[in-house]
Computed example of a mutant assay.
Amino acid sequence: MADQVDVAIIGGGPAGLTAATYLRRFLRSCVVIDAGHSRARYIPESHNCPGFPQGVSGRELLARMRAQAETFEARIVEARVERIENSGEGFTVSAGERRWHARNVILATGVADRLPEVPWCEDAIARGALRLCAVCDAYEARDQRIGIHGPADGLIGHARFLRAYSPDVALLPTDHALAGADAATARELGVRVLPPGGTLDFDGERCHYRTPEGDETFDTIYPYLGHHSYADLLRGLGLPADEGELKVDLHQQTRIPGLYAIGDVVSGLNQISVAFGQAAIAATHAHNTLPHRPRGSVL
């Protein structure tokens, strides 16, 4: 038998936990099904998250938000959703042997960064030697020696952004050398381009980029290797994702009524503050579509 809830929230990151807090304060039943893969857990310390002038780590933020949702008796289940089915009057969400039937579903799965396949990756992220979001923390990397690592065809846009923060920016292409307009733009920006296909290493403090032509040390490296999405959950619903990012309307609703998407899985700016707003919009709209439930009389 499936548990009955008003709303099933898939993902327990900042977006999903915010939605849960709103829905419980609307006196709606909801469940947060969380696989524990929020990108926020990688944040050593965020300084652009509203309300934390001294900064906050991703793990601390998640713990605080979970405690806040649980204050209003939000139910949080540790599980990985494998399937979402449209069951007529709502959806059936499955995770292993467990199932939930919900009038509405809010997708807050986020995306998973493709990280360098090295054993020291998480240690380097924790120390700021690898950084995953220039919008989030380029301010902290200003005037450092910055490397940008990834496929050549996607590096120039990141270089243009980061060149505003440091005079010493280098491109570390994983596949081939830059050519044509991209090579010319790199020269105009004053950005160095290193030989492609080098290897990354980490000495416990800084990252190194090694090629047959030499070894360069960087204070921080931004890897832009793409990401994995969780769009496979939607295949049974006939809702394809565009490069892992879903299209939604002004209410954060997909083209399937009752199915919402918030946070990094949605096209747009991947920021915690944006996820907060999207969660509030989706939760409020979902609440307003559910049957009205008058409170019992007080005698």
Results as ranks from 00 to 15, higher is better:
Arg28Tyr: 07
Val169Glu: 01
Ala286Ser: 13
Arg98Asp: 12
Tyr222Arg: 02
Glu89Arg: 12
Arg210Pro: 00
Val105Arg: 03
Arg145Asp: 14
Arg25Phe: 03
Ile125Met: 10
Ala164Ser: 13
Phe161Leu: 15
Leu62Met: 12
Arg103Trp: 10
Ser46Met: 03
Gly51Trp: 02
Arg187Ala: 15
Val31Arg: 03
Gly258His: 06
Gly16Asp: 10
Arg206Cys: 15
Arg39Met: 02
Ala35Leu: 03
Arg131Ala: 15
Tyr165His: 14
Ala280Leu: 07
Arg80Thr: 13
Val191Gln: 02
Ala184Tyr: 11
Pro44Tyr: 01
Gly13Arg: 07
Gly157Arg: 07
His287Asp: 15
Asp264Met: 10
Leu233Asp: 06
Ile10Cys: 08
Asn86Gln: 12
Gly258Met: 03
Val93Pro: 02
Ala261Glu: 04
Ile221Asn: 01
Ile281Phe: 00
Leu115Asn: 09
Glu188Tyr: 04
Ala282Gln: 00
Pro212Cys: 10
Ala184Ser: 15
Ile256Arg: 13
Asp175Arg: 13
Arg66Met: 09
Ala79Glu: 00
Gln144Asp: 11
Trp100Cys: 10
His228Leu: 10
Gly204His: 03
Cys207Ile: 00
Thr109Asp: 01
Met65Thr: 09
Arg145Gln: 14
Ser57Asn: 04
Tyr42Ile: 00
Ala280Ser: 11
Pro223Glu: 04
Ile76Pro: 13
Leu130Phe: 03
Ala283Trp: 01
Gly110Leu: 05
Ala20Thr: 09
Asp203Met: 06
Gln4Ser: 15
Ala141Lys: 05
Ala231Lys: 03
Glu73Pro: 01
Leu178Lys: 05
Ala20Asp: 07
Cys49Val: 14
Asn48Thr: 04
Ala286Leu: 12
Ala108Arg: 09
Asp113Ala: 02
Gly244Gln: 02
Gly268Trp: 07
Gln68Cys: 11
Ile156Gly: 05
Leu194Asn: 05
Pro50Asp: 03
Asp34Ala: 13
Trp100Lys: 08
Thr254Cys: 11
Gly110Trp: 05
Val56Phe: 05
Pro257Ala: 13
Gly204Thr: 00
Gln278Tyr: 09
Gly238Gln: 10
His158Gly: 09
Arg114Ser: 05
Gly12Ile: 07
